[in-house]
Simulated scan of single mutants.
Amino acid sequence: MFVCNYNVTMKKEKPHYLGHRKRLKERFVNNPSSLADYEIVELLLGYVVRGKDVKPQAKNILAHVGGIQNIFKISDDIEGVGSETVLFFNIIKDLFRRCEYSNLRENETILNSPTAVFKFLKFEVGFDDVEKLIAVFLDSKGRIKEYKVLSSGSVNESYFPPKELAKQALVRDAVAVILAHNHPSGNLKPSQSDIRYTKNVKNALELVDIALVDHIIVTKNGFLSFKQEELL
């Protein structure tokens, strides 16, 4: 009886997704617009999720958040998404925010339009699930001296009193203030509470000779200007 004593080493096949990921990167380099939304997310996930096919995960994320425009609403409540993945996308969001802010400061850009304010604050609060109130303090030329998140939860006197906002403006030697807050629902219509609070802030600022330039409602997709709507 013939017995074979040779040890045969079977060559392991590489996971199929490794070649796929390489091809995705090559396609991106040659023509970024040729990639579908889920493929862009898939590429990004490849940098945080190792040794795994992430195409199903990319598609699942987009299905849950409602499309690429909502990618920064990613959370670990989504099946297959861990804290590291959420952190990774939050880092990207903050990078965008810092780029916008740095560009405004470096070029001494004047916030002289609601569009400029929206562009500045979109990545600050536009994707947040909690309503936040922000004050942007301006100098005499309309340049940003500082901006600050004043409260989280709602826009009214109980969260941040108008008189306290006036004090904050005086401390920063601001000449004018732009008020802004986000609507997580995406609805740009101001509430009666929003309108009432805005009037009270305007009155409090006028007492110390500081102008309220505008109040902007921000969402991830757009904005509403109280000044343009003649609500200020």
Rank of each mutant, 00 (worst) to 15 (best):
T115F: 08
E42H: 14
Y147A: 04
G142Q: 15
H64I: 05
T115K: 09
I144A: 15
P161R: 03
E146A: 15
G82I: 03
K163S: 08
N112V: 00
I134F: 00
P56Q: 07
E79T: 07
L87I: 12
G51A: 11
I92L: 13
N70G: 02
G80Y: 01
N70E: 03
I110Q: 08
L138V: 07
A135H: 01
E124V: 00
N103A: 14
D139S: 10
V155G: 08
I40Y: 09
K148E: 15
E39Y: 05
V117H: 07
S154M: 12
L45G: 13
Y147D: 06
A63T: 10
D128I: 03
L44C: 12
N112L: 00
I91Y: 08
S140K: 12
G51V: 09
F120A: 10
Q69H: 00
L43H: 13
K122N: 05
N60K: 09
S140I: 10
S154I: 11
S158I: 02
P161W: 01
S113R: 02
V130H: 04
R97L: 13
P161V: 02
I91D: 11
V49C: 15
Y38V: 13
D129S: 05
I144Y: 05
F123C: 04
K163T: 07
E108I: 04
Y101W: 13
S151W: 01
I68M: 02
S33E: 03
N107M: 08
S83T: 05
